[in-house]
Amino acid sequence: MSVRPAGDFKTSYAQDMALLDTALYRIGFALLLGALLAAPLVLGRYLFLLNTIGIFALGAVGLSLLTGFAGQISLGHSAFMAIGAYASWYVTTRLGLPFLAALAFAGAATFAIGALVGLPSLRIKGLYLAIATMAFQFITEYVIIHTAGGMGGTVVPAASLFGFQIRTETQFYYLLLPIWVAGGVFAANLVRGRVGLALMAVRDRDYAAQVLGVNLLQYKTLAFALGASYAGVAGSLFAHYNRVIGAEHFTILQSIDFIAMIVIGGLASVWGPHLGAGFVILLNQGLRYVTPSLVTLLPTFARAATPLREIVFGALLIGLLIWEPGGLAMLFRKLKRYLDLWPFPH
């Protein structure tokens, strides 16, 4: 249910259906865009955090389409990221094509492979689908190790845009930002139209969706294709950002991190994957920063320090699932609802 400030009357359906349907939202979104544009000035040497968040948020958007909106679980999301990364490496180094071509190719190739991987989802569901996607994850890792040479092996050239080399964090950021925003807006538009409605219909009650004329196979494979394509684009960006790619970047742990992102952010939410990616990456970095000082303070702590990340993560996930299953996006919505009504609670 949506609660809107009193006095906010829509005069047409078009207006009622706009993505940013109130002046408040539009101002808020403009402010956010402004802040993102100005971020390099403020963040300085911490800009790498925002670059990392943007890349993984794009990947998480894909998983949120697949899992959050279409209800198909996947433990192989980072495998698609790997395919995008290596496709991008191949297109730029072996074919000598520019970065944008590599990005597009990574997106298209993962779209097609995603559709193929999604085909069995008509027959297998839930836990079995999780196992099948996990198998895909392991096969991909195996292929990488035995062809590209495993750990940290493959060097990717810097992205170049119309002959201009993207080398610094700030340059990369301004390359990433438009793709990040466009990817986010595209998904947000998609989920409120025909595709989103059909995906949610499949997720919530597949036989009712069939009665509405929804072809389950078509939409499930579309969900896999779209989800994989976002991961592929994220993989391409990651490859040209990190400049070195290897099997260790695309493990099943990374796939699980993606799941954590969309659960923490809010499963069926357009803001969820962005918030979740931000949270997970900041938490990762934060723990990496805090743990060594903890160990020097308390040497006995050293043995517990290695799994600290997993422990904190697990606790947070369980806590969030109990406290607010809607994730961060729902927390924000509640806060906003509260502010809308302030100072008159209800």
Partner: peptide, 19 residues
């Protein structure tokens, strides 16, 4: 109720994403 309109909707993935 809108989900009942699904079979009359034509917009493809690209058009839907760009809105």
């Amino acid at each position: 109720i809108t989900s009942g309109r699904l079979l009359h909707m034509r917009a493809g993935v690209l058009a839907g994403g760009v809105y």
